[in-house]
Design a binder for these strands. Sequence first.
DNA 1: ATCCAGGAAGGCG
DNA 2: CGCCTTCATGGA
Length: 294
Amino acid sequence: MQINVPTPSIFNFEHILKHLNRSSQELLHYIEEDEVWKWVEWKGESGLISFSHQLDHFQLKLHTHSEGLADVLPDYLSNWFDLDRDLNKFYQLVKEDGLLGPLTSSLHGLRVVGVHGLFEALSWAIIGQQVNLSFAYTMKRRLIEHYGKSMVYGDKTYWSFPEPKIVMQARIDDLMELSISRRKAEYLIEVASQMEKGDLSKEKLLQLAAPEAIEKKLCKIRGIGPWTANYVMLRCLRIPSAYPVGDAGLQNAVKQRLQMDRKPSYEELYSLAENWKGWEAYATFYLWNGLNKE
DNA sequence: ATCCAGGAAGGCG
DNA sequence: CGCCTTCATGGA
């Protein structure tokens, strides 16, 4: 079964592919010949899809008999790649900005690549706290291999991120076997538990609407500080003003672009962001992806 | 070896 | 509030 899903005029799949291809340890999707393969779970439907981009649309293939999946795939992709966002507004806003202006040219058409599941986003952020990205990917891979569901198709195994119900039952020592620190193991189990109980969900957070309220609610949870809250708001809740100022990558990107001899302070980062009001998430994502470029 | 990595908690004054 | 230490591991 084949489906086409239109993409907006400002859209560059090359940039997105590059982002998706960051780690060879990624188990949640694979890329072969500019085609993305992924086991999808969305709105009660699931199945294996692959897709490539042609001119102005995605060309998708369903590799499993998943009748209902086809109907929710446009929404799934829109959510993944933020297709409904009007990037013209962002580009107009930062056109004259010395920091971001150049990036809107070199990364033109890049959209914030999202994370669908709140538990996945929170887990990934917690795992990624204060460690380098490649090590974070190692821990994520092990977590998925131990607690995720898998299905084999062709010569590959496709994985889905572990469910809170499963991680909630893990013991701290089990998670520590995966090189996850004791504290992070405690955080993960607690977050999983709150999600399983229903106290914490993507829907409930989005209902709060106000970014400040969402951040406050998230930060009440042990293990979630301002960086993690804003990271999840950026990647999963898709709040455009989310701004993880504590992020080492963001700080290094600004340092590099402004040729500073030290990392910028929070104050300086907030000051710079005056030029990106309402688009801090995009600014951050562009800075991340422009790191080490040019 | 040393520093730092897409931080946060807990203690202290 | 701001500052300090601890947590844990691996990449460069």
